[in-house]
Write a protein that binds this DNA or RNA. Structure first.
Length: 979
RNA sequence: GCUCGAGUGGUGGAAUUGGUAGACACGUUGGACUUAAAAUCCAAUGGCCAUUGUGGCCGUGCGGGUUCAAGUCCCGCCUCGAGUACCA
């Protein structure tokens, strides 16, 4: 009651109680103190630890774990984490048992490159960086369950990465059951009947053999054959080799022909590499996309990446040679239009079939293309080049000779590396034919092809094509395939662009393969002897003989008898008296260990499952744990992983599903791509001919180059601190800055946030000035989560003052005391509250976090105006705000008299009845033009509303005695009168 | 080239999916408080016109269309962004 008296006093304008210094300190929203207090509380009380058993429904909210780079976090990094954290906290309020873990993708190139430069062990750099990341993450108040932290570079973790690799090695893909099976089932089939009837995804050069053949094969041959079936296998692959980085790069690590990291040139090179038979899963990876709620653009890019195309494979006999050329075509209906064939210059048959006369020209051409880098080839797509081999193939139906050309527009890596060229139906074939004056037969009814090819399937009617005449694309395709099958020269086929994924990297800082070699054949190390830990090396560069960095290790040989790593000296000692070791059941010697390491995506392909049971040393995770958590309910991360991590992780998950290790075919049901927060770089304009630097408005007409200036030297109105700049870049200390209106104004450009562009905004500084809650709210307020948007610190005062107002709402006496009273809330209070509950709940469910921040602001403004201090309103409001601004919410919650954390307080229930009003404003509109408003009782029906509207003066005035043609009443919305 | 996505005030962005366009915030301007600054509070703020007053016209990239009613739906363009690329 005393409070209430005070309260009335204060709002009555008679503030007689002057606060003491201590009270002033308390009465303000002291975010520094509050945030430190609650971060400590959460850590000490393990508030966010999830249990693997609960009566509550489960919810798994995951954000992509970061690579801990040396630069630390900038304001762009936490965006997705904040969104994920809001959702996780929301779900806790909603009564879910929430798993919200975090960890580090801590293997990677930067740590290794730093090691090369400084000699410091990558583990040390990584540890330092992780500690820094942790500090920054803690500062932002995330509700992560840190007891489940994983690091991909931790041997306890990568033990299981190695284990999955072994499972893949011990599996083959059975097309009949359409899943991965244990390699032992394949071996018993080979023993029983050979491989004639085996339908597997395997290497193309796999020979056909009988059961007898199999038993006669040497142990080594058997292993070689099995390697052609295993889901991870060794093969000579043409790879993207980056000499500058000394490593192989995946396709998605190359941008415009140069390495994504560092921009070094990349060349094609053949190497023996581990590969993953991801192509076995191409169709299932495609089909699975329909079952998951992922962003359409991301699905599209995976679909494109997999690149399914339906068509036919056709074999052409080569005239005068005992050889056939197999081609893949999506247009078997146009087969009568094929007037030549083109092989990729790298095609195996080229050297065999080339005639004497053409030999020189062909060889020159092949060499010339080999020399051209991928980048050059891409740069000039327009140039048409090719050479005739002198050989002819035989058309399967007409038996006419078809000249065989080679040309670099045909890619060795796609399809069979050969095409049947139908110039009338494909623009590239058309251009090629025109260029070399090859005939262009027209096989389309009523189509003019004198200028360009006709590629429109939908409007195709085939002509001049024997049995295909008069048929549509669809009919002709079916018919052509049927006829080809009769001849034994073709069949329907589905082709994928997706290639098997190269899995070896010539790096130090990655997972070692659990593999040693006996007679050059890979052997797996048993689970009980894992992890195989990274050895120490003197230097982190490739060896002088070009071996990967692990070649520098002195202690990197496998003692197969004692199952441990021994020094390379031992290797030499035992090696010379080894016989056919593969034949003996157990290997007792000392053998070399694989020198490559695994790529970055290895560790990230199973981490989400490992979080479920991260400390399990007996299994990758227990079946109880994964049986409970099953899959990720919400995954938040960047779209740049669309065809990398997100595809590989789906592949591993499907494999683990086949093996009965994972219960779900897809690891993440819903995925959201958070947009990038970009930086507004600042530029100064240096005159090229003098020592002058021009302000933005004066640079036009001058010969200037823009130079990045650090954004911290620029104020909100784009004015540069010139003295600060000179201090920062002493090379310009004598430069003359030409000002406009007494100021130096910088130019702005939106770019990706990056250290080298000096546009990085650090969250630490923001937290120091405004607090983590302000930063969290502001990052959400900036715009829709999925959209990329530039950072602009200026606007943060808006959300910060919202928090201050919120604080005041709970503390109107300005003395730090609790103001919430047991007073009955007014109808107005409840209306404001329930409006907010409804909107905020909807917004969170729809991931429209930006609009809910506005809703909070409106709510607090209204409640302040209403002078609301009722507990019945302020309690639920604290819960509503808590996912967004958890620290202040906890503090308010405590002020309201609770000793438990707000984290598990139930989310307020929305009740429609509080929004109901007695009257409603109806906007009235005439012919969509004149508008006025009319307030009418809510319970009025349609006819009553019409009558009330017609009786109104404005209506009469407008209608001037005429009868209205039509009256449209949309319930609760608008009344429209058409006069 | 192909595949997606987006164009709304000075700025970031709202708009219950066809129903009063510009919520909320930044910025700007004016005012209050202050010796002053900061902080805080109040008011105005799409454009043009009218103005003592309630007002009027135009406005969601451009051009058409459907509808009583279009930022939202349809047709045709333009621009920007993202992904991808000689894929047979």
């Amino acid at each position: 009651m005393a409070y209430k008296a005070l309260y009335l006093f204060r709002f009555g304008g008679l503030n007689l109680f002057l606060p003491t210094i201590g009270e002033i300190y308390k009465m303000n929203y002291n975010f520094r103190e509050i945030e430190a207090k609650w971060q400590k509380y959460w850590a000490e009380n393990e508030t966010f630890q999830a249990t693997n058993q609960s009566d509550k429904p489960k919810f798994y909210a995951l954000s992509m774990f970061p690579y801990p780079s040396g630069a630390g976090l900038h304001v762009g990094h936490p965006l997705g984490y904040i969104a994920g954290d809001i959702y996780a906290r929301f779900k806790r309020h909603k009564g879910f048992n929430v798993l919200h873990p975090m960890g580090y993708d801590s293997f990677g190139l930067p740590a290794e490159q730093y090691a090369i430069q400084t000699g410091q062990h990558p583990a040390i750099t990584t540890e330092t960086n992780i500690n820094r990341y942790r500090e920054q993450l803690d500062q932002l108040g995330f509700s992560f369950d840190w007891s489940r932290e994983v690091r991909t570079s931790d041997p306890k973790y990568y033990k299981w990465t190695q284990w999955v690799f072994i499972q893949l090695f011990n599996s083959w893909y059975n097309k009949v059951s359409d899943k991965a099976e244990d390699i032992s089932t394949l071996v018993s089939t080979f023993e029983g009947e050979g491989n004639g009837r085996v339908e597997a995804v395997c290497d193309e050069d796999t020979p056909v053999f009988s059961a007898e053949d199999w038993s006669d094969f040497s142990a080594k041959t058997k292993q070689e054959i099995l390697l052609k079936y295993r889901l991870t296998y060794l093969a000579d692959t043409e790879v993207n080799w980056c000499p500058a980085l000394g490593t192989v790069l995946a396709n998605d690590e190359i941008v415009n022909g140069v390495s994504e990291r560092g921009g070094h040139p990349v060349i094609r090179k053949k190497m023996t590499q581990w590969s993953m038979r991801i192509t076995a899963y191409a169709q299932r990876l495609l089909d699975g996309l329909d079952t998951i709620d992922w962003p359409q653009p991301l699905k599209d890019s995976q679909t494109n990446w997999i690149g399914r195309s339906e068509g036919a494979s056709v074999t052409f006999k080569v005239k005068d040679y005992d050889a056939v050329i197999e081609v893949f075509t999506t247009r078997p209906d146009t087969i009568f239009g094929a007037s030549f064939m083109t092989l990729a210059p790298e095609h195996d048959l080229v050297s065999q079939i080339t005639t004497k006369e053409q030999k020189e020209a062909v060889e020159t051409y092949v060499q010339a293309t080999a020399k051209r880098s991928e980048r050059d080839r891409m740069a000039d797509v327009k140039t048409i080049s090719g050479v005739f081999t002198g050989a002819y193939a035989e058309h399967p139906f007409t038996k006419e000779p078809v000249p065989i050309w080679i040309g670099d527009y045909v890619l060795a890596s796609y399809g069979t590396g050969a095409v049947m060229a139908v110039p009338c139906g494909d623009q590239r074939d058309y251009d090629f034919a025109k260029h070399y004056s090859i005939p262009i037969p027209n096989i389309f009814e009523g189509i003019d092809i004198s200028e360009e090819a006709f590629a429109d399937k939908a409007n195709t009617i085939i002509a001049n094509s024997d049995f295909l005449n008069g048929l549509s694309y669809k009919e002709a395709t079916t018919k052509a395939i049927a006829e080809l099958e009769k001849l034994g020269q073709g069949q329907g086929k589905i082709n994928y662009r997706l290639r098997d994924a190269v899995f070896s990297r010539q790096r130090y800082w990655g997972e070692p393969f659990p593999v040693y070699y006996v007679d050059g054949m890979p052997q797996m190390i048993d689970l009980e002897h894992l992890p195989l830990e990274l050895p120490e090396v003197e230097k982190y560069l490739p060896t002088e003989t070009g071996e990967p960095p692990l070649g520098n290790a002195t202690h990197w040989a496998w003692d197969a008898k004692n199952n441990k790593v021994v020094s390379n000296e031992m290797l030499k000692k035992v090696e010379h008296d080894r016989h056919s070791e593969l034949d003996s059941e157990s290997h007792e010697g000392v053998y070399p260990i694989e020198l490559n390491t695994m790529p970055g995506w290895a560790g990230s392909s199973q981490y989400f499952n490992r979080y479920m049971d991260p400390h399990n040393d007996e299994a990758i995770y227990s079946q109880e744990a994964i049986g409970y958590w099953k899959d990720v309910d919400l995954y938040i991360g960047g779209s740049e992983h669309a065809t990398g991590h997100l595809l590989y992780a789906r592949f591993w998950q499907k494999f683990l599903f086949d093996k009965g290790i994972a219960p779900k075919k897809e690891f993440a049901q819903k995925l959201i791509n958070q947009g990038m927060i970009t930086g507004a770089s600042a530029f100064i304009y240096k005159d090229l001919d003098s020592n002058q630097i021009f302000s933005k408005g004066l640079k036009d007409g001058k010969n200037v180059i823009p130079i990045h200036a650090d954004v911290s030297l620029v104020n909100a109105s784009d004015e540069l601190d010139v003295e600060g700049f000179k201090k920062w870049q002493p090379e310009y200390k004598d430069a003359e800055f030409i000002l406009e209106d007494g100021k130096y104004v910088v130019g702005r450009e939106i770019e990706k946030m990056s250290k080298s562009k000096y546009n990085v905004v650090n969250p630490d500084a923001i937290c120091e000035e405004y607090g983590a809650d302000s930063l969290r709210l502001y990052e959400m307020f900036l715009g829709p989560l999925e959209q990329s948007k530039p950072w602009n610190t200026a606007g943060i005062t808006g959300v910060h003052s919202f928090l201050k107002k919120l604080w005041k709402l709970y503390s109107p006496f300005m003395d730090g005391s609790l103001s919430a009273v047991e007073a009955e809330p007014t109808a107005e209070n409840l209306k404001t509250l329930h409006k907010t509950i409804k909107k905020v709940e909807e917004d969170i469910e729809n991931f429209s976090f930006n609009t809910s921040v506005s809703t909070f602001m409106i709510c607090v403004n209204e409640l302040t105006a209403q002078k609301c201090s009722s507990k019945a309103v302020l309690e639920p409001l604290a819960i509503l705000v808590s996912p967004y601004a958890p620290h202040i919410a906890e503090e308010l919650w405590e002020c309201l008299g609770y000793s438990e954390s707000i984290a598990n307080a139930p989310f307020p229930k929305f009740e429609e009845k509080y929004l109901v009003e007695s009257t409603k404003e109806y906007p009235i509109s005439f012919n969509g033009k004149l508008r006025f408003k009319l307030e009418l009782p809510l319970e009025m029906g349609r006819e009553e509303i019409e009558a009330a509207v017609m009786a109104h003066d404005r209506t009469k005035e407008q209608l001037q005695g005429r009868e209205p043609k039509k009256i449209i009443v949309v319930p609760g919305k608008i009344v429209n009168i058409v006069g």
